[in-house]
């Protein structure tokens, strides 16, 4: 354990089979999956900004966010397909629609989002079929928020302790982090006089993200430990400090200095990426140590036992 890190929960006694883990470590690969989590958030929230920009007549903001939505979705799809054991069978994802499988539901969000955001961006750049392009953009804008948040269901609906126990907070972490990334990217690339909505989205997203991530640590006890110690703990702290610094810079200088806006925006984007890697790694750490599987289950059994005796 690195300096300055103390486990928040005292060490607990539990039995195990030669200290071996009980559940399997997720087979999802780094960096494919954490990058996909980031790109989905960036693309989804950029599509929302793009529609607002179109409605309010901010052409520079619209151009950047349309390209971010389309590019993020395309790159995210590549990362997702690359993660498969059998990439050539990607289309099997669309064989059935299963509400019990967030990956299935997500595929039915990602596929149309990619097509619509791609069409909107293409039409915007080429000037061809402007009406249809706008219509596609509206569709992408509607699918954007679900795309940015469903990935939390993907992680939450597993037996991985650090993810499952945080399933209430993770959608807000991911949604806020996506808003922060989309706003941040636009702050980097859009002139100050058109970037106002991007700044406000990044600031609000950052606030939501920090509050939700802190609430995991405050409320989830032992299984929140992986978010605080080791490599994932370090990533989470770097991300939080970066986000906070970017927010301070945005509030102080974001409207006045093009340079400060660009630097703050880039910091937002980097912090959003780091958050996804931190959350991903925390899940893996919680799967590898049987403590996080056994102790909470034992406590649950003890509580059930206690309440059964009470009602007797």
């Amino acid at each position: 354990m690195a300096r300055g890190e103390a486990p928040m929960v005292p060490d607990v006694e539990f039995e195990s089979y030669y200290g071996r883990q009980i559940i399997k470590t997720p087979t999802w690969k780094t960096p494919d999956v954490p990058l996909y989590l980031f790109l989905g958030g960036l693309a989804g929230c950029s599509a929302v900004l793009a529609e607002g920009a179109a409605l309010s007549g901010r052409p520079e903001l619209e151009r950047v966010t349309r390209l971010a939505a389309a590019g993020g979705a395309a790159a995210g799809t590549v990362a997702l397909v690359h993660d498969l054991g059998r990439p050539e069978r990607f289309l099997n994802m669309l064989r059935v629609l299963k509400p019990t499988s967030p990956l299935s539901v997500g595929s039915f969000i990602l596929a149309p989002f990619s097509a619509l955001s791609g069409a909107a961006a293409a039409s915007h750049v080429t000037g061809l079929l402007p009406r249809l392009g706008r219509l596609a953009g509206v569709g992408a804008g509607v699918l954007g928020p679900p795309l940015a948040t469903y990935t939390a269901a993907l992680l939450g609906n597993t037996v991985v302790p650090a993810w499952h126990e945080a399933h209430r907070e993770l959608p807000f972490v991911f949604g806020g982090s996506g808003a922060q990334a989309a706003g941040g990217l636009a702050m980097m690339l859009v002139p100050l006089d058109q970037a106002g909505p991007a700044r406000r989205m990044a600031l609000a997203g950052a606030a939501v993200e920090i509050a939700a991530a802190e609430s995991i640590v405050l409320r989830r006890g032992l299984v929140a430990e992986p978010y605080q110690v080791g490599t994932p703990g370090r990533l989470m702290r770097i991300a939080r400090n970066g986000t906070a610094a970017a927010s301070a810079a945005t509030l102080l200088l974001g409207r006045r200095s093009r340079l400060a806006s660009a630097v703050a925006g880039a910091t937002y984007v980097a912090a959003s990426v780091t958050t996804r890697f931190g959350i991903f790694e925390a899940g893996l750490a919680s799967a590898r140590d049987p403590k996080y599987t056994v102790v909470p289950q034992r406590e649950r059994l003890a509580r059930q036992d206690g309440s059964a005796k009470m009602s007797r």
Partner: peptide, 25 residues
């Protein structure tokens, strides 16, 4: 077993993101 809670919170968060978008403009 917690699927309902999972999708419910995703729904709230998606609505919050849409709200952020409206508020930003």
């Amino acid at each position: 077993r917690t699927l309902g809670s999972v999708w419910k919170h995703v729904g709230y968060a998606a609505a919050a993101v849409a709200g952020l978008g409206v508020a930003a403009f």
